[in-house]
Every structure is written in structure tokens, then in C-alpha cells.
Amino acid sequence: MKLVRQLSLLSVLSLATIKGFAHYTLPDLIVNGTVTADWQYVRETANHYSNGPVTDVTSDAIRCYELDSTSAGAAGIATVAAGSTVGFRSNIALYHPGYLSAYMSPASPAANSNSAGLGKTWFKIWEAKPAYSSSTGMTFPTENEQEFTFTIPKSTPTGQYLLRGEQIALHVASTVDGAQFYIGCAQLNVVNGGSGKPGPLVSFPGAYSPTDPGILINIYTLPAGYAGYQAREYSRRILRYRKSFTTRAIAGPAVWSG
């Protein structure tokens, strides 16, 4: 009986250890419903074995989390039309609570160049916001999904780009450098584009601060301003605050929709 208890305890500890380290990567590009092979168009990331996240938003790893200087040349360049549905598939479900964003950056001279994505060139094209209610607290509609997709704006100019998919996991984000960033950068050749002027433009690193409201946050505690909230109170002030909170709980610039 003692041996059985010890084995059961070891099993529980083993499962806890596995879950603790079972983070994820974003190795697969999705184009119009088709999932491509691992790292076929996505630059291989430094966590391709460990699955570990980036936690320092001031490091160069926050850009594309590349394995090394060979990642860009090893990945191909996928040709997609402006207006196409694209996205990423993770190696396991995105089980951490957090939100998703997608950015693009023009790539010159080519998407597989190591200089692509440097400087203030990135613009956000999509985000999946958290939701909030008094009964559930903050929730994340994309939690436990393995794929996320979005549209390249139809007015995106023709050319080569980096497409950066990201989940910011917030389960331990109540202290500085607690938020976890899971990142993948795919290399694209966008055709049949338009004459839009993407913006606002940001850089990586530079787009985020360790103390941004959407990065330094305790998602398990009611935000300031809800302390006296009662279920029967639906004043305009409270409804405005709820809307603004879920908006400012997203890091980075506004979405450019074209």
C-alpha cells in the first residue's frame, strides 16, 4: 500500500512537471485553410525543443524568437494574395490564458533576409481581445485553441513581408517579466495588393514595455474600479470602464484594418 501511494504521488508530480514545461511553439503557417509543414515558412524559433517563452520584452528575441542567423534562410517564402485568410497552428493547444495578436512588417530586400523586421516597420493587423463579466471575471475566447486565423487586409501593398503571430500568456503576469510570449514569424510574398498605408508603425523591441497594462496584470483579481460593483448596477460609468479595461488590456498599437 505504501508503494502504491508513492507511485501515485510520483505520477501526480510527473504530470505536474510535464504540464509546467509543456509550453508551445507556432511552427506552422495556415493559408486559406491549408496547414503547411513545421518550419516550412515559419522561421525556426529558439524554443523549438524546449517550448519555453520569451519573457523580456526589451530583448531582440521579442521580434521573431529566432533560433539563430540561419533561421531566415532555411524557411521558404509563401505567396499569398492580399485579402487571404492566414494564421498559425501551434504544436499543442494554447492552454495558457492570454490573448493573440498578428503583425506584419515589409521585408526588404526579401522576407528571408536577416535584416527584415528591423526598425520601426511593424503594424498590427489583428488581435483577439479578452472578455470580462462580473460572473466569470476575465476570460480569453481563444484559450485551448490550436489554430488562429485572420485576414491580410486587402489594401496591403504588394511585396514581401514578415508575418508575426503571438500569444501573450498572462497566467503569471502579475509581476514584471511574468508574462510569457509565444511567437512565430512566417515569410510571405503578398500579391494582388492595394495602395493602403499601414500604421501606426512600431519596432520589436520597442513596441512593449514590461509595465504595459496588457503585460503587467493580475487576471485573477478584479481590476481597480470594480471594487464596489454590484450585479444590479449597470450605470453608464461602469459599462464604459468595462469596455475600456478590456481594450487597454491589449498591448501594442491599434489594429490597422486597411
Rank of each mutant, 00 (worst) to 15 (best):
S113I: 02
F148W: 15
W122Y: 15
T151D: 01
M138E: 08
I125W: 05
E145N: 15
F123H: 13
Y132G: 00
M138Q: 09
P109F: 10
F123M: 11
T151E: 08
T139K: 07
N112G: 03
S115C: 01
P141I: 04
W126E: 09
K129R: 14
G119I: 10
F148S: 09
T139D: 05
E127V: 12
K124A: 12
T151K: 12
K154S: 14
T136K: 08
N112W: 03
A131Q: 09
S113A: 14
A111G: 06
T149R: 11
A111E: 02
Q146R: 15
P153S: 04
Y132W: 14
N114R: 09
A116Q: 05
S135D: 05
T121E: 14
N144T: 10
E143A: 12
S115T: 15
S133Y: 00
N114E: 03
S108G: 08
A111N: 03
E143I: 11
T149F: 06
S133A: 01
N112F: 01
W122M: 12
T142S: 14
I152F: 03
P109D: 12
P141L: 10
P130Y: 00
N112L: 01
I125G: 08
A131G: 04
N112T: 04
G119L: 08
A128M: 01
A128P: 00
A110S: 15
F148M: 06
Y132H: 02
G137P: 05
E127R: 08
P109E: 10
A131N: 07
W122D: 11
G119D: 12
G117H: 08
K124V: 11
F150Y: 13
A110P: 01
A128F: 04
L118E: 13
T151F: 01
S133E: 01
S134T: 05
I152L: 10
E147P: 06
S134N: 08
F123L: 10
